[in-house]
């Protein structure tokens, strides 16, 4: 396509405006996170690192961070342990009802989280699993496994099943084939799936709101309850920390995908 300088400048302006629009909330939150004021308002009144100190000193946030980290890590591990065999079965085996199983694995994505949260609350309350780590992890598994199944299925589709057969003919038993041939081939997909699962679990608010309580309260729920009563710059500082965590994770995913590309030129 031929494009003159006018068209190019037009594009640049359009893209800049678009990105500014998308990033505006993040930029405002970033600026606000250094404010000296006692409540959130724009423009800021001064510059200070005090909001960040408050975040790290807040016992609710500390407890929430711990709950979220433990939940997200366990959820990620279990989601991979369930999702990888599921993806393997769905791509490598032909069995009756395969389509139904695949649909079942992806169906949590179709149900609004608020409905899922309510349903889980009704289900968990009498057991009782509400306000426990396991309840939270179980709830998060429902929304993370579909993503792991998706990413690993995509990675498996790109791996040559004949290579697995070749390994078997060379004397590798089924588990060795998986460890030595299948796993290296799907490692980027596994990596991406794992990070996506971690982020989803770490960020998950709606379902957590239903199944968590005062003892086991993940960070997003703690944040939500904090802003119900107060809104000061420390909440902006916390948001900046969470955004940075996500950015780091996305960069890792990108590098994971880049790794796959370099393996299969």
């Amino acid at each position: 396509m031929r494009s003159g300088p006018v068209a190019r400048i037009g594009w640049a302006v359009l893209l800049t405006v678009l990105y500014l629009f998308l990033l505006a909330p993040v930029i405002i939150v970033f600026i606000e996170s250094f404010d000296t004021s006692t409540y959130l308002r724009f423009p800021p009144q001064g510059f200070s690192l005090e909001p960040y100190r408050q975040v790290f000193a807040n016992p609710d946030f500390q407890a929430g961070l711990k709950v979220s980290a433990v939940t997200a890590a366990t959820t990620t591990l279990l989601a991979l342990l369930c999702g990888v065999p599921a993806a393997l079965a769905l791509t490598r085996l032909r069995f009756r009802g395969r389509g139904a199983v695949e649909a079942a694995f992806l169906s949590p994505l179709l149900v609004p989280n608020i409905v899922l949260g309510l349903a889980l609350l009704i289900l968990f309350a009498p057991i009782p699993l509400t306000d426990t780590y396991w309840g939270l992890i179980l709830a998060h598994l429902g929304v993370t496994i579909p993503y792991v199944v998706r990413t690993v299925t995509a990675a498996l589709a790109g791996a040559d099943p004949r290579a697995e057969e070749a390994a078997a003919t060379l004397g590798a038993g089924p588990f060795t084939v998986f460890r030595r041939v299948t796993l290296p081939a799907i490692r980027p997909g596994l990596f991406s799936g794992g990070i996506i699962a971690f982020l989803l679990s770490f960020d998950e608010t709606v379902i957590s709101l239903f199944v968590s309580g005062h003892t086991v309260r993940p960070l997003p729920v703690a944040v939500l309850q904090y802003v119900e009563y107060r809104s000061d710059p420390s909440i902006a500082a916390l948001s900046v920390c969470l955004v940075l965590l996500s950015v780091v994770a996305v960069v890792l995913v990108e590098r994971g995908l880049g790794l796959r590309r370099s393996l299969r030129p």
Binding site: D160, A163, E165, A166, R180, A185, L263
Partner: peptide, 20 residues
């Protein structure tokens, strides 16, 4: 006998080398 105990050398049409 399962495939990994058969002692067969197989060359596949797609070669099926281990890319990693």
């Amino acid at each position: 006998l399962p495939v990994h105990r058969r002692d067969m050398g197989v060359v596949f049409q797609s070669y099926a080398l281990f890319p990693h």
